[in-house]
Design a binder for these strands. Sequence first.
DNA 1: CTGATTTCTTAAGGTACATTAATTTTCTTT
DNA 2: AAAGAAAATTAATGTACCTTAAGAAATCAG
Lengths: 205, 205
Amino acid sequence: MIRKQKPKLPAILKYDLILANVGKHITLDEKEISFFTSLLKEKHIDKKDFVLKEGQLCQYISFVNSGLLRAYYLDKEDKESTIMFAVADWWITDMYCYINRKPAMLTIQAVEDSQILNLKKDDLEKLYVEVPKFEKFFRIIMQNAYIREQLRIIQNLSLSAEERYHQFLTKYPQVAKQVTQKQIASYLGVTPEFLSALRANKSKR
Amino acid sequence: MIRKQKPKLPAILKYDLILANVGKHITLDEKEISFFTSLLKEKHIDKKDFVLKEGQLCQYISFVNSGLLRAYYLDKEDKESTIMFAVADWWITDMYCYINRKPAMLTIQAVEDSQILNLKKDDLEKLYVEVPKFEKFFRIIMQNAYIREQLRIIQNLSLSAEERYHQFLTKYPQVAKQVTQKQIASYLGVTPEFLSALRANKSKR
DNA sequence: CTGATTTCTTAAGGTACATTAATTTTCTTT
DNA sequence: AAAGAAAATTAATGTACCTTAAGAAATCAG
């Protein structure tokens, strides 16, 4: 397969977004910044290529610098369930398998050409030891992730497919424009045919 | 309403469980232990009484010493969706509202007479400052909570009601014995009538 | 112990959503 | 630009799960 040109960001820009992301919750000095960034491995992912496949060891947590990734679960009948979308400024991994060094349950694929920064489990552990402030940072990241997932559970239990679709459009308008309806349907837990019918009914009114 | 006798645990026992819980992830010295425990407020909750009601400010995160609590969401049609059960050795709160000091979306009610230890948001923040190891502790607690919720989403999207019921029985056999089928149904996202029918089919085979 | 309340069960009829399949539209590759 | 592949739409038919209702069983309050 012929590789496309990889547009490398100048180093000065490469870490801008992630440092701003970290800076929302903790403050780092020069040394801490250079130690942290030294642990990050830049990677370009072409559209439709995989960051992680089911069954592989999930070595990295990835910060999205640009582009759009999707994590999904494939069940025994090969039906996809989209677990999350990650746009620029988001973190994504198969958390259970990353933390416990187990084979991945999730597949993570690029929806668009993407630029990510990877952090290995071992390096994250070093980071916790060397710069304990990162315990706080990831405490907040995990807390927010927990809250988001819990809200999604509440909505899955209490709302109809149509209401969930509307919520999705409101909450992630940008993602909604970039992904296929098939992918949105698999996030909502309905078939693409049914989502299509919902949309047709909606626009009639 | 006539209050029942509250059986107070001797102090030496009162903190045993929570200190073992914390001790799974971090190690505390004497001073840290006494500072931490000084922030905890013991509370007895009679069966069916409320720890938190929708709309109230959620001031506490609660550690369950004994008994069983249930957190649920009430939608506009007054339908209950059970978000979690918390048995002894578990932490429970309306995390979004606790962290952001917003009115609670969830109601937390005692399924059985329960003994809990409450930690105020302000005191937790003091704890993070005085004993930074607690950042690590709650990082791990949040991480585990995130992983659990994500697994639940995967199962809600990919499994039938019957499969989810079976998973629930396997994962929480003790809880399954203590709560009503109505409550299990509302955790699974089905009506009690349908769960009853599932059980009838299952036992036929 | 007794009546009242809540839970559980069963069953009939209804609805939200799935399946299959055919057609059109959009996207991708060369 | 053309061909091929994937996505979206539409429609008919099917099913998992809901609603309503009524009776039986279990639990609770006095």
